[in-house]
């Protein structure tokens, strides 16, 4: 697959990056190389092979739906943000 600048810009928008033109150009080259490398999987015959998404030996771990005491309280968590007002996180305008 041939990676174009518009592909890089599309992936950047999916990833929430505002790339400069120079970054776009250099990522184009890098992504091209990486995609070429990972495409070698095409050689592997995976007909009738089931996919593996995790290697943990258990599944469906349940617990009761109840609120337990947490290590960090609201004040400690809100103290981490850059701008806070009346226990709310402040951000620039949305629209």
């Amino acid at each position: 697959m041939d990676v174009k600048c518009e592909d890089v810009r599309h992936l950047a928008s999916l990833s929430d990056f505002s790339l400069s033109d120079q970054e776009t150009e250099s990522l184009k080259k890098d992504l091209q190389g990486i995609i070429k490398y990972i495409s070698q999987l095409d050689e592997l015959d995976t007909k009738d092979v089931e996919p593996t998404y995790q290697v943990f030996e258990m599944e469906n771990v349940w617990r009761d739906d109840e609120i337990l005491p947490q290590e960090a309280n609201r004040e400690a968590l809100l103290a981490l943000t850059k701008e806070e007002e009346n226990h709310q996180i402040k951000v620039p305008k949305v629209l």
């Binding site: 950047a12 999916l14 990833s15 929430d16 990522l27 992504l31 990486i34 990972i38 620039p92 305008k93």
Partner: peptide
């Protein structure tokens, strides 16, 4: 940043290293 979208984009663009960006973009590609 003037608005929220720009804040996300600028923060992530300035905050991640080039290799972080490569991996995130390859991930979104595959």
């Amino acid at each position: 940043s003037k608005d929220l979208d720009a804040l996300y984009n600028n923060t992530r663009n300035e905050g991640f290293m080039p290799e972080n960006k490569r991996r995130i973009m390859i991930g979104n590609f595959v």
